[in-house]
Each structure stands twice: as structure tokens, then as C-alpha cells.
Design a protein around this nucleic acid. Sequence first.
DNA 1: TTCATTCATCGTAATATTGCAATGTAATAA
DNA 2: TTATTACATTGCAATATTACGATGAATGAA
Lengths: 111, 111
Amino acid sequence: MGITKTDLFTEEQNAIAQMAKVLGHPARVAILQYLVKSNTCINGDLVQELGLAQATVSQHLRELKEVGFIQGTIEGVSVCYCINPEKWAEFSQLFGEFFENYFVAQKSNCC
Amino acid sequence: MGITKTDLFTEEQNAIAQMAKVLGHPARVAILQYLVKSNTCINGDLVQELGLAQATVSQHLRELKEVGFIQGTIEGVSVCYCINPEKWAEFSQLFGEFFENYFVAQKSNCC
DNA sequence: TTCATTCATCGTAATATTGCAATGTAATAA
DNA sequence: TTATTACATTGCAATATTACGATGAATGAA
């Protein structure tokens, strides 16, 4: 079928999956790392940096924006992108807790 | 096209993306959370727990196993799955650093 | 106004993912 | 041996993703 059965899972599980899915492409990871380093950038910078077509970069930026990782503001003829601090903190915590739960609960090791 | 151009990105970026991609489905998140809670489980447990067909669960388990999140050992007629502690720690750190880099580098806020 | 720049969106081709029924395989039970 | 149980694998249909050329919209410059 190709369609994910989100109704079978908790909101948290779907939220984690949605975020992870967006991180699940190296171009989007690269965009975020570039933004962390440079604070802001415009689409054109990333086209140079990544070596992907402008339309492709624009599409990745949209996905990052849709889940909230980044925000963009129109600045004259270009669009200035940067990381959304609140969302970044929220995602960081969500992932952090997800991984941490294992270390907290860790019991006898495996089968 | 439909094929990711991994050669454009660093090994770290591809590694993060690969891990994130596997976490990018709520069923796989649910499986990991279930394993964190119960320490071990077999395929049949998850079919009950998730409400997906046996073949589908098996496929998700394979993906989790391929990147190293979990390991499975044959135990008589069934297969016992559990979290791979080393990989879990590795992934936890990789994600942790990815998010932490922002808090360390944080400058003037955005555009 | 006209042109150039910057970016988003549309349309499309290639490929990947999701989900399941059907079937295959291996181990144990009868 | 035959049957059963527990999974994996195969094959397929539906859908999603990736990438890009072409085009559209908005801004600023000439």
C-alpha cells in the first residue's frame, strides 16, 4: 500500500518518526549543519554548498520548514533562513529522552 | 531520479541520515520503545502489540537490525530480539552531538 | 517600463517505501 | 514421519520520495 498507518501509534511515536524522517536525508542534515555553523543563509548559498539543483534545495528547505526545524524570512529579493531555536530545543529533548530511556531502564543484557 | 546523491555529502551526514531514516517510521519507533521497556521480545509479541501483519513487522525488524539498532538470536523455534547496547550508545551520542552543536555555536538569533 | 535576480511551485521520471498474502524454512512436538 | 509453530522472504499494488527542468511570482535595478 505504501501509506503509513499512523493511527496505530501514539502521538509521541508519530512525532519522533516525523522529525526523524526529515533528518533522514543527508542534504537536509547538511543544510542544518551549515545553518548551525553560519547562523543564516539563503537558498543560493546552499545550492553552491550542496551541489544540488535550486529546485531540489528549495524542496528540502520546505520540508525542514514544515516540521519547524528552520524558519525563513523574506529579505528583499532573497529569503533568509535560520534555525528555529524553540523547535530545535524541543526536538533535541524529544530525541534525548528517547535514547535516554534505554540507559535508565537497562536490565540484564539481551538474549 | 528518486535516488539520493550520497556522494555529495560527508560520511557523518550520511550516517546521521541513515539512522534517522530508520527512526522515520512510527512502527520502528514503537518497536524500539517496546524493547526498551520489555528488554527482549519476539516477532509475535510485536504483531500483537502493533497491529501490523507478521510480514510487515518482520520487515521493520530487518531494517532495525541492518543499521544495528537491534540484534536477534535464534532461540528454538522463535527469534529473540533486543537492543544492541553499543550501537544504541553510538547513535545516542551522534544525535546528541548533532543537536548540541547548535547550543554551543548559538549566536545572534536569526533573520 | 523592462530586465535581472531569487526563490517557490509544477510537472515528470526514476526509484524507494509501506503493507500484506502467499510461500518457504527451520525447529520442535506428536 | 507428519504436523505445528515462529519467522523470513518473495512478489505485488499503492503510495511516497528524490531530483530537476521549466515556469511563475516578487523584488529591486536600470
